[in-house]
Write a protein that binds this DNA or RNA. Structure first.
Lengths: 233, 233
DNA sequence: TTCCGAACATTGTAGGACAATATCAGAGCG
DNA sequence: CGCTCTGATATTGTCCTACAATGTTCGGAA
């Protein structure tokens, strides 16, 4: 692995890159994750503990733990006595994850629609209000709205395990790998679908909410897969 | 924490408890997991790195890693500068996990029914053949059959990510905590339901397979929750 | 050419040390 | 008597070095 591929290689102890006590592991994980999803670390690249310790200016302990976490997330593969290799998701894995996510979010939408807690419903309505007010003007804004919307659904679904599990589904990674091919039309369509889902939830229509969420994610999966197919690989 | 609560406390370097090189972490994880689910380590008990190193006769590195893994599984909670505390699943968490498992297995059943690969279907039929041949004579046999059946469904569903995710859902732990209140009637019912699910899958009836799996797990969840409610807590 | 063994690379683990931080007991004060 | 603040203590977070175990590679011999 080239030292240049990791930005921390040059000044390991300077500027603000020295994380506070207790944040070293998180620091390394974030750097490596970013390097992987951004493509700086190519598929199959080897991550050797010794090199990482030198590049980050930390000892092997945190490096090892960071590698374990990345491996748990599926970003790298730990090969005993060989080192860790970057393991980006295959098209098939992405399709499988989308399928799972679809079921989990559909469940969340159903549960949210079934939830009768008035206070939580009010919170939900407030959280998603921005979606009804305006259309996102840029991709970043859409991504924020999207995350907010799905988080609000999970919050109303009131199933903590579901929320945690969904969070571990590497959705940001998938988004990063799928690429920012989000055209304005897709954005519009997505927001429209969000509104439909929200309406069904607020109408206490579990079946409708579930169906709307399924349709939403099925379309998103199709878009992602089409993009993925277009890539040469 | 009393040293007696962990069987490894007495002879840390004797008999066969010294794991081979490369298996130390797994060794510790298994010991601790067993101690937790068996109740030897009570809820809220503190797990201090220093004590564990002494009891297992290993250094802090593997102990730390083992604790991280247990925390990832939800069995313990890591409190910074406080130590790890045993965190058994609450009734609510179990209910939430059952709900998620229901959706995931329902998805698996649907996918399995949709799978048209002749070779895989044949493998599935062979794997579940014992279920049709006889009724389990004891609980252990049932548990084995149950695991075999669900594994076969996942195999036919042909979604690797789904299989992995389901495996991380702490089902064995839940079973252990729910307790072995499996009466012969429940066993019989469960086997009957397995047969119905298998029949739907082999009939290439996705909706039927999904419905049957939902019914099966919903009933299992009800049984577990009833048992759980009976416990004083 | 193929197979075998030795050097090499890399991880797995040990053990000690210090820093950072949370907890707790007790002194001092109102 | 109760409250706050401070110091002692406990525990984790990190670093460092060293060695053991094991997979890899490459040269040499049959």
């Amino acid at each position: 692995m080239d030292a240049q591929q990791l930005p921390a290689a040059d000044e390991p102890a300077e500027e603000g890159d020295g994380p506070r006590h207790g944040a070293t592991v998180v620091f390394i994980v974030e750097r490596l994750r970013d390097a992987i999803v951004s493509g700086r670390l190519k598929l199959g690249a080897r991550l050797v503990e010794g090199e990482l310790t030198a590049q980050f200016g930390v000892s092997r302990g945190p490096v090892r733990e960071a590698l374990r976490r990345l491996a748990a997330d599926g970003l790298i593969e730990l090969v005993p006595h060989r080192g860790a290799i970057v393991r980006r998701l295959t098209r098939r894995e992405i399709a499988e994850l989308f399928q799972i996510r679809l079921e989990l979010e559909a469940l969340a939408a159903r549960l949210a629609a079934e939830n009768g807690d008035a206070a939580r419903r009010r919170q939900f309505a407030e959280a998603i209000a921005p979606i009804f007010e305006s259309k996102p003007r840029c991709i970043a804004e859409y991504l924020w709205e999207n995350a907010t919307f799905h988080e609000a659904v999970y919050a109303l679904a009131d199933n903590e395990q579901l929320k945690v599990l969904a969070g571990r589904l590497q959705l940001p990674l998938i988004m990063a790998q799928v690429g920012n091919i989000l055209t304005p039309e897709i954005l519009d369509l997505s927001v429209t679908e969000h509104r439909a889902i929200a309406a069904a939830i607020l109408d206490s229509d579990p079946a409708g909410a579930r169906a709307a969420m399924c349709a939403h994610l099925q379309r998103a999966a199709d878009v992602a897969d089409a993009q993925r197919r277009a890539d040469v690989r």
